[in-house]
Design a protein around this nucleic acid. Sequence first.
DNA 1: TTTGTTATTGAAAATAGATTTCATTTAGCG
DNA 2: CGCTAAATGAAATCTATTTTCAATAACAAA
Lengths: 153, 153
Amino acid sequence: MKRFFSKKEGMSTLAKIWEDHLRARGYRLTKARRAVLETMASETGHRTPEEIHRQARWRYRKLGLVTVYRTLALLERLNLVQRVHQGKMRCHSFAAVRLEKGHHHQLICRTCGHVEEFPDCALDRTLRKLQARTGFAIESHHLEVVGQCPKCQ
Amino acid sequence: MKRFFSKKEGMSTLAKIWEDHLRARGYRLTKARRAVLETMASETGHRTPEEIHRQARWRYRKLGLVTVYRTLALLERLNLVQRVHQGKMRCHSFAAVRLEKGHHHQLICRTCGHVEEFPDCALDRTLRKLQARTGFAIESHHLEVVGQCPKCQ
DNA sequence: TTTGTTATTGAAAATAGATTTCATTTAGCG
DNA sequence: CGCTAAATGAAATCTATTTTCAATAACAAA
């Protein structure tokens, strides 16, 4: 996972911007929040609340897991952080997908939750190259696109 | 969600193939399993175990949710069904992703769980077209590629 | 600085989703 | 039919997430 700023450099520019954002909206800047903010701002990539908690405790030992959940919810409301998936497992059938020529993916509205399916994502060539380069035997892929639907804009 | 076969048509070809698959491996074909099999084979698209249960009960009223979980696990072991995500929420920061030129995605080994990151998924053009066609203001996307890593093959 | 107000916190309780246990049922065989 | 082991449903358990609540600490005003 790529790190933008080493721990020694302290807070990233991004985390500073977020702090201003919170202050401007009247939220208090606590040690707990700073720890989560800086942790979230320091890496791309998805992490579970537990992983975030483990990382953020290097910045503030007393941080509780509950506060991580709450801070993530706050950052999500402010559109600074996004939940890439909910806490529910989801299944689909390989074969049913293969029966269609070019399968479908999901376009999800972040505001109203409306889901639109769209076909053929034109990834085949990219995936073939990826397979050649990494040696993985690629079996399936899953693409989720998030945005705002026309009604909610 | 597209349906391949109407309910009146009864069992789909795909479901029949799956039944043979189970029989060949010595698994028993119960009403409960048939109901889940036919339900999974009848649609593409991700569903939660609860949704699958609700749908499958139209085929077999007495079906329990636990059996849905168990049957999905079985179908997964036989590589007929795939879990597109686990029961844990995952978050990432929009802004951190935007700071990088071309962001990273994940290549996951279904057997050992090894995760490899890869850059730039060449989706930009597709997404621009999608935005134009649907009117969605696209904000982010998330791509997960599943396969078997070289060691596990 | 010190003080007072109130948002925020952590711990524990409550809830929800997924898995395991176990007594009962039933598919598939003779 | 009957037998037997595999499969089921209900309840118990486990794990992830959310809510509750008394204690704490941020920060505005003195």
